[in-house]
Design a protein around this nucleic acid. Structure first.
Lengths: 231, 231
DNA sequence: GTCTATAGACGGATAGAC
DNA sequence: GTCTATCCGTCTATAGAC
């Protein structure tokens, strides 16, 4: 063994990613310097450019690492539901669980940075950084298509346009749910029960209530379930 | 008239605020430089420090200018509702309208920067910048207290803790609703109908559906309306 | 009240030794 | 694969003329 014990490249890589993830959520992309990241990770400043090429490429890898896995799990959950249903429309609640529950589960992992990452992701949906937005859009394209189709079939009496909007609203609610107690200090000290295990059912009932709410007046209800024009 | 025609101080001030507001929402606080702001506003670089003292003070003034007025309108709307009700609990839908409708109305104003500001505000709830968070928390303290109290009275069968969470979720949904079509590109090109006038009823029906949704299983329903323990 | 010029700190990125 | 040293650009903030 003539090799230096410190030449552990793969570990350096992940140490940088972990440090970057934690600092980005705390200070934003522009507010976090390479020097902060490397000193936090206990590696040399030049290591970032060696392993990732640039700060932008590092940012991208922070997202790719987690998002690929998250969306893979989401699609697996949806595949399973569809296989069980055998062609029949799914229950809306199961679809919503497959998409948002998977995310909430990742957010509940405080051990391996899942919580940190989900806070960062929530922040980033409304983030101005153009190239991150572009990257997220690509990363989400397939999973979004699949879940929207499933919802269209599951709730045929609600027009697609309204499902689209409501799905959008749901993502906003989830984002705040995860940012939750640590994020904004608006509700600081107000929550008595911030048990992470209860966040999931709390959010789920809210989301489903919103998804199945009576339609706004201007919308024509479509299929079955007695075609009243809402109140 | 010996005075220089360009010595129009109040206009310089608001030109800077307008430019800062627009640039902040597009590139974030750290991503926006004083040089960008002043050149966009057509004023001298040093004018910002002369009028506001520092970049942080400028950021604060960007929010204060709009938020004071927004929250004043919210409280006025709530006062009116309570005066009309004369001591009786309010309808939840009216309370939600008074809080979120006022914000949506401001977001619908694309002429005087209201839309821009509301996008910025939505972004900022989950923003990491510590001093902005602190400032927002102070600015919101009273209005939040008043509206939460009104909701507690309006929906007594839902425990306060759950109302708190649901109000939090509602703010997330609103934030995404406003960021909406221009914000994230996830749903880019998917919306057929992005009519701002319809955003309000769309969001309202979603929010009320979520607020009044069946409670999660672990929650004990409280007052009237037949105390079942949810499904 | 507005301007130019510049101080002084910090940013990302890289060259080249080991 | 990791390190030190450094280039060079941009940043906020301010001094001082007008």
């Amino acid at each position: 063994m003539t090799e230096n014990i410190n030449k552990s490249a793969p570990e350096t890589r992940s140490r940088i990613l972990d440090a970057a993830e934690a600092l980005f959520v705390e200070h934003g992309f522009d507010g976090t310097s390479m020097r902060q990241i490397t000193s936090h990770a206990g590696v040399n400043l030049a290591a970032v450019n060696y392993h990732f090429g640039s700060k932008d490429a590092l940012i991208q890898e922070v997202f790719r690492r987690r998002l690929t896995e998250l969306n893979r799990q989401r699609l697996m959950a949806l595949d399973r539901l569809e296989a069980e249903a055998g062609g029949a429309p799914l229950k809306p609640s199961r679809i919503v669980e497959a998409f948002f529950g998977t995310a909430i589960a990742l957010a509940a992992d405080t051990e391996h940075g899942g919580h940190t990452f989900m806070r960062l992701l929530g922040r980033t949906y409304t983030d101005p950084n153009a190239f991150v937005r572009q990257f997220l859009a690509e990363e989400y394209a397939e999973v979004l298509e699949r879940f929207l189709d499933a919802l269209y079939r599951a709730v045929p009496e609600v027009p697609r346009e309204e499902i689209l909007w409501r799905f959008h609203f749901m993502m906003g609610a989830m984002s705040y749910a995860i940012a939750g107690t640590d994020g904004l200090q608006l509700f600081a000290g107000k929550f008595d029960d911030a048990d992470p295990a209860r966040l999931m059912p709390r959010l789920m009932s809210f989301l489903l209530g919103g998804l199945r709410a009576p339609l706004p007046e201007f919308v024509e209800r479509r299929g079955k379930k007695g075609g009243r024009e809402a109140a």
